[in-house]
Amino acid sequence: MASTAMTSAGISSEAPRTDFGRVLEQRERRFAAALLAPAFLALLATTTFPLLFLVYTSAFRMDLAMPFTNGFVGLENYRVLLSDERFWSSLLVSLVYTGSTVALQVIIGLALALLVMDMKRGQGWFRVIAILPVVLSPAVVGMIWRTFMLAPEFGIVDFLAINAGLGSKNWLGDPTLAMVSVIAIHTWQWTPFAFMVLLASLASLPDDIYEAARLDRASAWQRFRRITLPLLRPAIVMVVIMRTMVALTAFAAIFTVTAGGPGTATEILNLYAYRKSFTELSIGYGSALAVALLIVTIVISGILFAMRRAK
């Protein structure tokens, strides 16, 4: 591995044969180590160490409210977890939330990108306005939707629903509607991301293939199905992978809007781990839930990466 990296890396690539070359190489290695050290020490301290400590805590009963019951319990937390209905329901909520938001983002984003691609004027509007939702804090987005958009009557969504003859709805109080609402909010905020990425890759597709297809009298649908979609596949898969990782660990936009409620209707696994640890102060079990979330993340990304390599 090192030798292939060397030739591609440039500077004094013919040197290693001589003593002088070896000295140079050693110096470069030391220089690299010095440059990397601060960042890698920080990453070890803020990611790897917490991970190990998390797995360690998950083997304890650690209840901040009742410290006298604390102690080593081995795999007990995981045994409890497997028969914990709230865990399974939060996992299901996570999967529904992730699956639906990612699908919606990709479908709407792609459709819109195809539409805007053909526009001669007005593309600039899309480029500027699409940026707005994605740069906002999900916490602020959640707060705005919870109040000015979804509040009964004067909230704009409810106002529109009333005028459309649907009547005023309890958008965040009804279990099903609350789930629909948090999915809609996430989709609102992140569809512009899919849109911008797909628009950028659409713009980079070669024109001549389409020219040839037109000469062959391929229909618009055929062109989309046989040319655009296969060429866009890498970009679509990338968007799916990135958005899946984020949706699985979404927090702020659900926390601010419903806090997982009503009941546990919108409680994704991430939120359950948080509530268990910091609201119910049962840190040991919360850690086990976080480890479960990590395993779910790894399994899902493993599947997605396998799909990416296939075909």
Partner: peptide, 14 residues
């Protein structure tokens, strides 16, 4: 390192 769920980092860190 980016695969780690933030909630899994904050519990031990806290």
């Amino acid at each position: 390192t980016q695969m780690l769920p933030p909630v899994g980092i904050i519990i031990p860190y806290f």
